[in-house]
Design a protein around this nucleic acid. Sequence first.
DNA 1: CAGACAATTGACCGGCCGGCCAGTTAGCGC
DNA 2: GCGCTAACTGGCCGGCCGGTCAATTGTCTG
Lengths: 201, 201
Amino acid sequence: MSQRIQTRDPELTRTRILDAAETLFVELGFSAVKLSALARSAGVTKSLIHHHFGSKEQLWEAVKNRAFERYFTAQMAMLEEAGEPNAELLRSSVVAYFNFLRDNPGVVRLFAWTHLEGDSHCSDLDNQLVGAGAEWVRQTQERGLLRQDINPTHVIAIFVMTCTQWFEAKCHHENWPGMGSDEAFLEDFLKIFMEGVVPRE
Amino acid sequence: MSQRIQTRDPELTRTRILDAAETLFVELGFSAVKLSALARSAGVTKSLIHHHFGSKEQLWEAVKNRAFERYFTAQMAMLEEAGEPNAELLRSSVVAYFNFLRDNPGVVRLFAWTHLEGDSHCSDLDNQLVGAGAEWVRQTQERGLLRQDINPTHVIAIFVMTCTQWFEAKCHHENWPGMGSDEAFLEDFLKIFMEGVVPRE
DNA sequence: CAGACAATTGACCGGCCGGCCAGTTAGCGC
DNA sequence: GCGCTAACTGGCCGGCCGGTCAATTGTCTG
């Protein structure tokens, strides 16, 4: 609920609006967000939102684009600093991804909202990312360090989906009897996953 | 868009409203549903909805309760007809769960909406279900047919979450490069999962 | 058949939603 | 300094949202 301050700095204003919008959209989803509340919490007038973004729908698109771009650059960076293919590196990639989602709960919710919308417009960047990951898995398979009878894309999908769902549905299963902490769950998942992907001797 | 027909049968009317509401809520989520549209598609007047359910919020609760009850009884039935604990049975449980979600896409979306709402009110029945599943895993572990260094609840969680996310985020990853069909993915998941949960010789 | 009561209707309400517009103000090139 | 453009404002609008209510109709009980 920041004060109304004329900045006369369009870039800053846009960011203020985007930040406030992201917070609200992530929390409530598109249709439950009221432009009036959003304006109040961004410290601008409703008209200013329309001035900079045109419509509620376009603002939502802008929020998603910005967030996904952040996500993809972060992931790409993680992927690029990965070294020589081997099983241990797969393990640490899973850990890194898990921790990334833990530290960016907004991203997780944003993904969830867009999935429910049936939105698949982020596919360009995403395909690139998955493609790179799968290629990395394929190379590791070729060296005999991962079992070769599994589709590399599925390997990526399985750990991505498990991590995502863990945080997306946290409220649902955190009270399940016997359910452990983030760390305990990740450890058990890795036991199964890593044991499942390396070749049997 | 059914016709307006006076039934004078309150039970039937309630069901008609619940059915139409479930369809719309599943599709659009709570706040994007307009009571007027809902009334039209149920073939009743808006007032009749209020008469039978009180408010939009209460109707939403009723829809969730009915759907979850269906889900839980279906799951409980599957669980109860499971026989003697062994690894092969775990495999077929995963397949059964996967197929259940494939055939009930509405349930998947309903879960997703409630997760985003932070709703955890279905926990009573759910805990019972997970508890039974985890106990079954524990017994199988005890017989030495599953590795014992993994929290039984986590075993359940991992396959439930993977299956759920597969369908929940279908629109997102179905275009990923190299991604296979439902069956192909399930098969690869089972390869990893089953290999990961059985003890190494 | 009376009369009680629930099912059902349509007209209606206050409120507020997203969006628009006429006007004011500040910054920036000249 | 001057004017042009874009940032920004406040007020307003049409529409429709969820919800209410008085009246009507059908059904069941005694």
